[in-house]
Each structure stands twice: as C-alpha cells, then as structure tokens.
Design a protein around this nucleic acid. Structure first.
Lengths: 197, 197
DNA sequence: TTTGTGCCATGACCGTAGTCATATTAAATC
DNA sequence: GATTTAATATGACTACGGTCATGGCACAAA
C-alpha cells in the first residue's frame, strides 16, 4: 500500500517466509506493520478440532494485521504464509508516525480499512443468513470485484475448495457438492477441477 | 464521536426518528455522516423470508454507516431506529473535509474503524467455527467489554433474545435454549427473564 | 381486575449440512 | 513414463439447529 522506498526510509526490513510459516500468532501483541512484497499471506483462526476460518487473504502490495496497531488489542487471528513470500515490516511506532506525517497516506489507509469493513459486512451477512450456495456465490463475487478490473469474461478462481470452505465457514464436501450444483445451473464453469466464474 | 459543536459549525442538522423508522436503506448511496445524539440505531440486513441480521447497534455518541462515505459503494445494510432517537448529520463532503482539517480527529476515527474491524473479526470467527452457546458467550463478552468500564460484577444485558439471535445468526428458540443451559452451568444469571452476565 | 401486548419458554418433528469412509482424478516428483 | 502426493469427488449416515405450534409470564393501559 505504501511506496516501497518510503517504507525503507522508515526502517522497513525485508524478510522471507516459507509456505505455511507463521508470521504472528492469534493473541500476540502487535509490534509491526507488515506489507506483502511477494507471494500471499492468510489471516486465519484455528479452533480446537483443527478447523480453520480464513479471515482474509492478502496479496502483493497489501498490508495486513494493521487494525490492532491502532487499538490496544492482541491479534484476533494468526498470519500464515499462504505460499513462499517476502514481506516488509516497520515498527508500530514508525507506522503511527508515518500516518501522522502524511495525511494523504493516512486517508488512503482509512479507505482501505473502510473497504475491508464493507467486505466483512457483506460476508457476515451471508454467513449468518444464507445457505451454502448463496454464500459461495457472494464470496466469488467479492473476489472478482476486488481482483479483476472491469473484466466481463469468466475469471479463473485460484482458490482451492478447502480455502473456499475455510472462508465461508463450510466443509470441503459441502463446497464441492454446492459448486457442482452451481455448475449445473450454469453459474460457474468447472474444467479439470478448476473453477471459472 | 466528534464534538457536537464542531458538527454544528460544519453544517450539522438534528433530526428525530421514531422507533423502527428507517434512516437509510441497504443499497442506498451514502450521502451523510450520522451520529447518535440520543437513543440507539441498528444496522441490519433483512433477507427474503424476513430474517434479520444485526450488523451492529450504535448508541449515544457513536457514528454509523461511515465506511461507505470513503469508498464508492452503496450501504451494505439498512439503518433503523432501535428506539426513538435523535441523530445529527453532516454531508459527505463536509465529513471528508473535516477529516482532512483535523488530523487528530482523523486518527481517532481510524481507531474507531480499527476497533470495529477487530470486533467483526472476532464475531465472524465465532459464527463460522463455533456452536450456538459459544457464539452467544462471545457476543456477551464483546458487549461487556465495550460497555462496562472495568466493572467486575454482573452486568445486565439489555438485549432481547431476538436481538441476540439476530446478531449471532441463530433463531430465538435456539438462543433461549442455549441461555438456559448457560444458566445451569452458571455462566449467566437469569432473573425474571432478564439476563445478567 | 381485566385485557392486551411483547417477550420468554418448551415440545415434537424435520431437513440440511456435517461426518466419515472411500474412490477418483490431477499434478508434482523422480 | 512411473510413482507419489494432493485435491476433488461421491455415498451413507447422523446430529444439530431450524421450524412450527402452543403456552406462560411480566408489565402497561383501559
């Protein structure tokens, strides 16, 4: 989100993470602002019996885990490398200072939070009020909207069924069954297991 | 959130709403920043068969519906007067201008969004991963934390079972049954139907 | 006191998504 | 190309929360 050079001048340091490596744990005190340089990161909750809930997936250029830098709360979820990736981080203090010194950046940061809140509202409405099929469709719509820039034709969905399940609070089998139905209805295409929406 | 006088100088106007009156509808374009002066407001989604999902309840001094003022999206939920209330509103343009002119206010606004995002994370994790009882307990904890200031003794919960159901994505009957179990376990007290946590 | 209203309470039944077990297909590794 | 590994697929069974119907209690207004 911030310009790379700016982060470096504010003491930003790069670090590599391997797939499935944890960046921070749920419950940890927040010390750094993180931004994805390469690869992707998921923020995830794991409950007692190992079931995951993915709060969000963050790609190149996106930051994550910042809200708790501004309020005195521990991380509500863990951050895990979704694939091999490179992150840059700056300290909490520098991050806050940076917001104060660059009002424009602060505003665009506020917009990022607003957008996230908006998406979370959409998703929690889904999860609490609708059936699996509807939930999946909404998730796909949100993804498409945030990724493709006004591209009308079908977009390859680069999420596994498991990931979709973990983002909608469903089980893999349910997702698979629903997506099969959705294919029959012509909502999505499935070719060799890959989904196009 | 903002100081009342400040809002007035920025063109703030007061308006009364009666219980159950709608302030704006899901899908509307956002035109104003609203703040609660008296009473309370709920932001709510209603699905086809009339089931409600309450995204949040906002009390005196709190603002609502602001995220979409900063991004180009329609309201993700409707705002309805939870009881008779008085609101103050200023235009979108003035709101944005206000943020730009008062960096301190901007920062505290960002903190409000961060806090809301944090709470939404907690709640969506619950809704998607845990059973009814756990969900209700977490909701109560969030409420207590945000209301009572370090008060250790039991707090009267001023939510109806229906409201709890609408905030957790459950049905009234399920909430009632669960809360009875929770009473037996000593997690909550119920006296004359009123809940103490 | 009576009537009314809103919320709380409880039981019986039902349906959907979860669970578990097992194939099958795709793709990565050698 | 052969072999291993991961992801997708499918079936049978089950449990949990939803649904619907009905009743009771608390409190306010007539």
């Amino acid at each position: 989100m911030f310009h790379r050079d700016l982060l470096i001048t504010w003491g930003g340091i790069f670090r590599k993470y391997q797939k499935d490596q944890t960046i921070f744990y749920e419950g940890d005190k927040a010390m750094f602002y993180y931004e994805v340089i390469e690869g992707s990161v998921k923020m995830v909750n794991v409950n007692e019996d190992g079931k995951e809930f993915i709060q969000g997936i963050f790609k190149r250029g996106e930051s994550f885990g910042e809200p708790v830098l501004l309020i005195d709360e521990p991380y509500p979820a863990s951050a895990v490398a979704n694939e091999d990736c490179v992150l840059i981080r700056i300290t909490r203090e520098n991050f806050v200072q940076l917001l104060k010194e660059y009002p424009d950046i602060h505003l665009s940061f506020t917009q990022v939070l607003a957008k996230r809140l908006y998406n979370k509202s959409l998703m929690s409405k889904e999860i609490s009020s609708y059936g699996p099929e509807h939930r999946i469709q909404t998730l796909l719509q949100i993804l498409k909207k945030n990724i493709s820039t006004a591209n009308t034709d079908k977009l390859k969905v680069d999420l596994s069924r498991q990931q979709i399940a973990d983002m909608t609070g469903l089980r893999v089998e349910t997702v698979i069954r629903c997506m099969k139905k959705m294919q029959e209805k012509g909502i999505i295409n499935i070719e060799k297991g890959k989904v196009y929406f």
